[in-house]
Simulated scan of single mutants.
Amino acid sequence: MPSSPTRRRILATGAGAALAAGVMSRTATAAPATEETRSLDELYRAALAEGGKLVIYAGGDTPTQQDATKAAFRQAFPEIDLTIVVDYSKYHDVRVDNQLTTGTLVPDVVQLQTLQDFTRWKARGQLLAYRPAGFSKVYDAFKDPQGAWTAIGVIAFGFMYGADAAGPTPPRTPLDLLDPAWKGRIASSYPHDDDAVLYLYSLYVRKYGWDWAARFAAQDVVFARGSNFPGDSVRSGAKAIGVGGAGAPLGTGPVRWVLPDSAPFMAWGQRAAILRRAARPAAAKLYLNWCLSAARQQSSFNGWSVRTDITPPTGLRPVWTYPNAHLDGFPAFMADRAEVERLKQTFALYFGEVHGDPTPGRLGLHPGA
């Protein structure tokens, strides 16, 4: 028969349980980080005192894609030496992983499409918990409750057409892209090279079936790397329709991005975070506060803001009010890497293997150093 526990063991066990409960209680009830109260001018002075330099790794498709952001930031804070390195997010994230492992970290801020990385980095304690001014106004799904990351902009992917090339009856749904009139006149980024484009195509297949993919492949679509490719092809007049790229839904220029009534498109909040081992945290904080400022959010290229207190232009609603944007679906999709890989290989069977050099160039291990 087992002996009864001794008084010492009971006391030790009870003390340990009480200590654990106390730790859990303190953790659960610990006050969250407060929202930034300093002005941009005060943050600017702190960044200058730190050294006046900032390096950002930004997800994107061309080396010049962040030039407008860089110019606007430099105009506001001319004494900050800002470097923004643009590369595919799927290269930036493993680049950062390698730099963290080897003790050679270059960027202070990462802003990427690979949403799953922010969850992973937070769990490993690699992100700085910080709430910029305006954090409380950010849509809940666009921020980490503890401030490990926040979205700084809304990006939406779908398809677009040339106003002149498409004529009086432009396509309005993905089914319209199967019209024989568009054969040989469509450009697309590879869905199996860019996870956001992959999610968009997966939504099309979910709604219309794999037969849609087979019929779309029969349209003699030209595929290339980079989500800039569809828009560039339509803008240049090379193609009438582009699939798998961003645009402004209220745009009235020569390239019209389609915001469908009920057909699927996809959108997400581009996440940004300060790395805990960043060499220049003061400059990084200045940048995030500037990105979330009302002035910046009101000037977004597509009219959408991550903030709930910024009213979109007339004719546009907040992006989270569009069920067909599948806003909640993309983070879950990005977290399921096995499903992502399965879909990549399946679309390769329909559209062929990915060809071509990466559009931002080959940047190596430590760009921006």
Rank of each mutant, 00 (worst) to 15 (best):
E341K: 11
A248T: 08
Y91C: 10
F223I: 08
E341L: 13
R296G: 09
A213F: 05
T13A: 15
K344S: 11
Q111A: 09
S299V: 08
H192F: 02
I56A: 00
P5G: 08
T62M: 10
T104L: 14
L115S: 00
T314R: 10
I241Y: 05
H326P: 07
S305T: 05
L250I: 14
V94S: 05
D261H: 08
T37C: 03
W149H: 00
M266G: 15
R337M: 14
A156G: 15
W320N: 14
T311D: 07
L128A: 09
L363S: 01
L327K: 11
Q66H: 14
A196M: 11
R215C: 12
P170T: 07
Y190A: 03
A338F: 05
K143A: 07
A267C: 02
A294H: 12
R271W: 05
L316P: 10
P230T: 08
H355D: 13
P171Y: 04
R215T: 14
Y139D: 04
T29M: 06
T314P: 10
G364V: 00
A246F: 13
A68E: 11
V234M: 12
P312S: 08
T314Q: 12
A129R: 08
A214M: 04
T314K: 11
W268H: 13
A15K: 00
G253W: 06
F157C: 05
I310R: 04
G247P: 00
W210G: 03
P312V: 08
G51W: 04
V205L: 07
V154C: 05
H192V: 02
A335V: 00
D97R: 09
V86H: 00
S305R: 03
T101D: 11
K122H: 01
W182E: 06
D179R: 10
R185Q: 12
R7Q: 14
S136T: 03
R120N: 09
V255L: 01
R215P: 08
V319I: 15
Y199G: 01
P358H: 13
G231V: 05
T119L: 15
M266Q: 14
K183C: 09
M334F: 12
R45F: 05
T27D: 15
G153H: 13
A72Q: 06
P249E: 05
T252N: 06
V138N: 02
D179C: 10
D140P: 14
D195F: 14
S236M: 08
A325F: 15
A248N: 13
R131V: 00
P331L: 06
